[in-house]
Write a protein that binds this DNA or RNA. Structure first.
Length: 271
DNA sequence: ATGGGCACCTGGCTGC
DNA sequence: TGCAGCCAGGTGCCCA
């Protein structure tokens, strides 16, 4: 599910409800997430104050007095702020009970999400330490994309989805970024011109920031921390629009498969 | 170093 | 109605 805009939307929704609050308890109903939630985690968290929230790529960071929670939403996860007495529903896997009477409740039907706790600089955690620069950092620019694509024979879409090269862009925003930069998804990365690298860097940032502004994209089950869906779906140009007219030129949007994942593009707008 | 394929899971939809 | 098959916002790991 969640790509960078959905994770950032969740973080923003969470922040005012958790910053400064104390954790009363962590209750794990189903520890079998992508990685098993350690049995001793509740004991380590109880009583700690939450100092703030952050995000690295698609990982949500919840800073505590003595460490950091690293939350991943996987494909189908959501983290919501709810009154603690809200009845649980299917696939509610853990509750982070706060001293405000609210709970941070994690729901994830597919259980591809995860929960880690780390002491010290979270960016040194093995899951985060080898990630590419943030798309909104100055380092992520035309020159960066140009450099990393020079000797790559993989398709440009694969490069966008490779977290060691680009973070935050998943299946939806890869197709959308390529549409907006007018580049065909199957092009070899090394075939991009300087001009195209520049357009793509700009498109990635534009697409992600526009999506954040409207609360992300809800296709099926995604909701933000307050239970609100995201409205970027209405602004998608190609994703899940196969067979429909391109919103720019009217050509029928095509669908293809790359590494087992659907890609959408306009054969007329994209070269 | 790079790239490709697999694995992990549940649910919803399609078509026979 | 039932059921098999396919698809879905991710990504770490193993192998060539």
């Amino acid at each position: 599910m969640p790509e960078l805009p959905e994770v950032e939307t969740t973080r923003r929704g969470l922040e005012p409800h958790v910053a400064g609050r104390r954790i009363v308890a962590l209750t794990v109903h189903e520890p079998r997430l992508r990685w098993r939630v350690p049995d001793d985690l509740p004991a380590r968290l109880a009583g700690q104050r939450i100092t703030g929230t952050g995000r690295r790529a698609k990982y949500l960071l919840i800073a505590l007095e003595s460490g950091t929670l690293i939350v991943h939403l996987g494909m189908s996860g959501s983290l919501r702020v709810l009154p603690a007495d809200t009845p649980r529903i299917a696939h509610d896997h853990y509750d982070l009970l706060l001293d405000s009477g609210n709970t941070l409740r994690f729901n994830d039907p597919r259980r591809f999400g995860s929960l880690h706790y780390t002491i010290g600089d979270p960016h040194r955690h093995p899951l985060l330490s080898r990630l590419a620069p943030e798309p909104f950092d100055a380092e992520f620019d035309a020159d960066y994309l140009w450099r990393i694509t020079r000797r790559r024979r993989a398709s440009i879409k694969q490069v966008l989805m490779n977290s060691r090269l680009v973070v935050g862009v998943g299946n939806i925003y890869a197709s959308e970024s390529l549409f907006r930069s007018r580049i065909r998804p199957r092009r070899r990365a090394q075939s991009l011109s300087r001009e195209e690298a520049k357009r793509l860097a700009k498109a990635v940032r534009a697409v992600l920031s526009m999506a954040i502004e409207v609360g992300g994209t809800t296709l099926r089950d995604y909701v933000g921390a307050n239970g609100e869906p995201g409205y970027f779906r209405q602004k998608l140009y190609v994703y899940e629009r196969a067979g429909k007219a391109c919103r720019v030129c009217g050509t029928i949007v095509r669908q293809l498969t790359q590494q087992g994942r659907s890609t959408y593009y306009c054969s007329s707008c994209q070269k």
